[in-house]
């Protein structure tokens, strides 16, 4: 249950990028979450809501989670595969020499803000 700490980090980053907390409210926060990032989306949503509720400019902010697939590329035959199970082997040639192209991301990509009326 480290999602609470992750949610706190997300909100800290958002606040650092908000020009003026009194003049703007955050409408949405876009976060990229890799399949192998070790995050449970429902748990992150819950944690985000708890912390956002105590952050006046973020009370109504929507957490938009973009789930990123786990994709590997074989360094032998160059085949790229979207893998469901965490088996880091090329299904084409069975090589274990693979590079992870995506699926470990955990980052805040963008926020939508509007002026406080």
């Amino acid at each position: 249950m480290h999602e609470m700490s992750v949610a706190q980090n997300i909100i800290d980053i958002v606040l650092q990028h908000l020009p003026d907390q009194n003049a703007h409210t955050v409408k949405s926060v876009n976060v990229k979450i890799g399949k192998m990032a070790g995050i449970v989306p429902d748990s992150l949503e819950f944690s985000f809501r708890v912390i956002a509720a105590d952050t006046p400019c973020m009370i109504d902010a929507e957490l938009k989670m973009q789930l990123v697939p786990l994709i590997i590329r074989c360094n032998g035959c160059t085949k790229e595969t979207n893998i469901d199970d965490p088996v880091f082997m090329c299904p084409g040639c069975n090589s274990a020499d693979v590079t992870v192209l995506s699926g470990t991301e955990l980052q805040v990509s963008e926020i939508e803000i509007e002026d406080t009326t």
Binding site: I13, Q107, V108, I111
Partner: peptide, 15 residues
């Protein structure tokens, strides 16, 4: 409404 691009790792402070 405006969009601000951030692209920062969530755990960068820890890193």
């Amino acid at each position: 409404m405006s969009v601000i691009t951030i692209e920062r790792k969530v755990l960068e402070k820890n890193d």
